[in-house]
Design a protein around this nucleic acid. Structure first.
Length: 278
DNA sequence: CACGAGACCTGTTCGC
DNA sequence: TGCGAACAGGTCTCGT
């Protein structure tokens, strides 16, 4: 489910709290409930609970789609995969149907990791690099210049759609924002990465940053039964809009399967050919 | 190396 | 109405 904007929205919520829930900063873990053991990727469930108990939260960070919880001397790292979510609730609340892990805080509040499809994973480690080591650059990293991005695209020869979804190429993009960024840049999802001109590479990087910035401003997207206050679903140009008319040119939006994923694009605004568009 | 298929899971929607 | 198929915001592993 969550891509970079949704994880960023969750991070900010845990950091600041809201009208009905407190910030979790500086809160101390008094107990841990593990309801689905496979959610704990590292270490063992027993060690995880033992090592986490008594620790306090120092900060919430993010790297790609990973949420990094800085503790006294370790990091608690969440990946929400397809259906994961994090909720702050009063401790007396009963477990919800798909709760997989609960951190109980001394303050009387809980942090619940709820994950219908059980794909989500959590790590507790002193060295975050063991989990994050293979991630590509953050989309907003200042070191990711247009020249660097163009060089990255030409270092491989891959279809744009699967390449942008590859977290070792660039981190944080998922199916929604990849489709939206390719539309914004006017690039067909099957274009070969090594066919992009410098201008096209620059347009793609700009589009990625624009789409992510706007999605974060809208607190991410809310789709299906998952709702956490996000509003970006009302700004989709192509995602989930197959059969509708393109807002830019009026052509019918197409959907096809590319790299195992449903892909949405405008055949007129995103022409399919492997020569650079001038 | 690039790419497709299958696996991991549960719930909702679609088509006959 | 009912039931199986297809599909879902992600990632990993294997085979070609």
């Amino acid at each position: 489910m969550p891509e970079l904007p949704e994880v960023e929205t969750i991070r900010r919520g845990l950091l600041a709290g809201d009208a009905s829930t407190p910030s979790l900063l500086k809160q101390r873990v008094s107990a841990v409930s593990i309801l689905w053991e496979k959610t704990i990727a590292f270490p063992s469930a027993r060690e995880f609970a033992r090592n986490l108990t008594g620790k306090s939260i120092r900060d919430f960070g993010r790297r790609g789609k990973f949420l990094l919880t800085a503790l006294d001397d370790a990091f608690l790292i969440f990946h929400l995969r397809m259906s994961g979510d994090l909720n702050v609730r009063p401790s007396l609340t009963e477990f919800h149907p798909h709760d997989r892990l609960i951190l109980h805080f001394a303050s009387g509040w809980d942090l619940a990791f709820n994950d219908t499809r059980k794909f989500g994973r959590v790590w507790l480690t002193a060295d975050p690099q063991t989990v994050l080591g293979s991630l590509g650059p953050e989309p907003f990293d200042a070191a990711l210049t247009r020249e660097a991005f163009h060089a990255m695209l030409h270092a491989r020869s891959r279809q744009l759609k699967p390449l942008l979804l590859d977290q070792s190429f660039i981190s944080g993009l998922g199916n929604i924002y990849t489709d939206e960024a390719l539309f914004s840049a006017g690039l067909h999802p099957l274009r070969s990465s090594s066919s992009l001109s410098e201008q096209e590479a620059d347009a793609l990087l700009t589009a990625i940053r624009l789409v992510l910035t706007r999605a974060i401003q809208e607190h991410g997207s809310s789709i299906d039964w998952v709702y956490r206050g996000g509003n970006f679903q009302n700004h989709f140009q192509v995602y989930q809009r197959a059969g509708e008319r393109c807002s830019r040119c009026g052509e019918i939006i197409q959907k096809s399967i590319i790299g195992q994923r449903g892909s949405h694009y405008c055949p007129a605004c995103q022409p399919e050919r492997n020569e650079p568009n001038v």
